[in-house]
């Protein structure tokens, strides 16, 4: 009961924040609101016991994204241009997509259902055998590092490549700036 009320209040705040984001034209206020939106989402994840997801959401959404968007705003405009076109078609598309997604949840098992496919497929075997097969006390670590080892290796490679790419782009930018400045001095 308490949990339902907490979820209800959090979702009410989330929706009002989303409407405020849509209505505002001051981009700075929108960035602040987006960071609050992310914090509210993180709180909802915490109420669902997904603490790790909540932490990623807070770190990426409220932390890094705010800084990146502020940096972007420093390079571009401070205010959104007032909208001149009609919003009817985008609104229709959003409504249809939302309805399809809600229809999709009809087949889903209830939250925390012990007979859900996610609970009965391979999870019991992992829980039963991970100690003797992998000998790592944390089952999540055993799954990520051993049962799905190649998957994790691929993810790490993708993140590493992305990091190298960003570093290359940034170093190229700094070098070009320096060259420009030297030319300016002459």
């Amino acid at each position: 009961m308490t949990e339902t009320i907490i979820n209800f209040i959090l979702f009410a705040m989330l929706i009002s924040t989303a409407f405020a984001i849509v209505r505002m034209t001051s981009l700075f206020a929108v960035i602040m609101l987006a960071s609050v939106f992310s914090l509210l989402t993180a709180l909802l994840f915490v109420t669902l016991d997904a603490v790790d997801v909540a932490f990623t959401e807070a770190a990426v959404g409220a932390g890094i994204s705010t800084v990146l968007m502020l940096g972007t705003m420093a390079l571009t405009a401070r205010h959104a241009k007032p909208q001149t076109q009609s919003n009817a078609i985008p609104f229709l598309v959003v409504c249809v997509t939302g309805a399809a997604l809600i229809y999709g949840t009809m087949d889903m098992p209830n939250f925390g259902d012990p007979n859900a496919p996610a609970q009965v497929h391979v999870a019991p075997e992992y829980l039963e055998r991970s100690i003797e097969e992998i000998d790592v006390p944390n089952v999540v670590t055993a799954i990520l590092a051993s049962y799905r080892g190649y998957d994790t290796l691929g993810e790490t490679a993708v993140v590493f490549a992305a990091g190298i790419g960003v570093l290359l782009l940034l170093s190229g930018l700094a070098r070009r700036r320096k060259e420009d400045e030297e030319e300016g001095d002459i």
């Binding site: 960071s35 993180a42 932490f55 807070a58 770190a59 409220a62 932390g63 705010t66 800084v67």
Partner: peptide
């Protein structure tokens, strides 16, 4: 979370 908030 407090640390993230501070950095932001």
């Amino acid at each position: 979370y407090a640390l993230i908030n501070f950095v932001g």
